[in-house]
Amino acid sequence: MYRDARLGVAELDVIVLVKQVPNTAEVKIDPRTGTLMREGVESIINPDDLHALEAGLRLRESHGGRVTAVSMGPPQAMDALREALGMGADAAVLLTDRAFAGADTLATSYTLGKCIRKLGRFDLVVAGHQAIDGDTAQIGPQVAEYLDVPQVIRATRLEVRDGELHAERTHEDGVEAVRCALPALVTVTREANKPRYPYIPRLMAAFDPNAPIKTWGPKDIGADERLIGLKGSPTQVQKTFTPKLEKKVEKLSGQPAEMARALVGRLKERRLA
């Protein structure tokens, strides 16, 4: 818990939100059917979330305190939390239950928010800017809103000074330095830091039955069943379809100079050059 630095105690309780995602870099498209080939695609910690963990760990290292990693997902998301412990998190909570499944960002933010409340006081929630499977970048702000704390989105640098969060974040046309009261929520981008590799003894210890990972369901966090999972999700998927990739491709051939001339010709026909 954060206390005034002037009192000589300045430990930070940091909560890091972690999502396990399929490694989309490995997802390929079947060239014949145009559908996703998801078989055998490994699950990884969402890349931005690794930077969130690193940011949380560095804050703890300079201030003392605790880092707790929280993830909602299927039971195998335990792997992501083990990795978080391997990197140095003090404890982890896996929110897993059939009732949590099918959640959109609203239901997810409720679930994560409830869990954070259940964990007690916190000074900072750190999350990755966005997940590579959903790309919504909505969870951070929605959790911040649920917890009624200010947010710093897309932070590239952060430090805690005099009981306040000082951060820099990227903007469309510059870098913005902000100051923000604690508790707060921060999302970080990959420019924020270079995540450490797990420390193998800690990583292996995370497989012990007594590793500090709690598994919580809706009752454990006092969640209203109507507000979680598919039931608590106002948005529904009506349909999915693969965008038509097939275009008429014109292949240029010949020597580089010939191709270049042909290309200029085509660009001119299309009024592009």
């Binding site: 970048a137 702000p141 989105i153």
Partner: peptide, 19 residues
Amino acid sequence: GRELAPRVSRRLGTGLTAD
């Protein structure tokens, strides 16, 4: 827009579809 809309949706308790 992408940091404002989620807060509004959460406060209103309504759905939001990104991008």
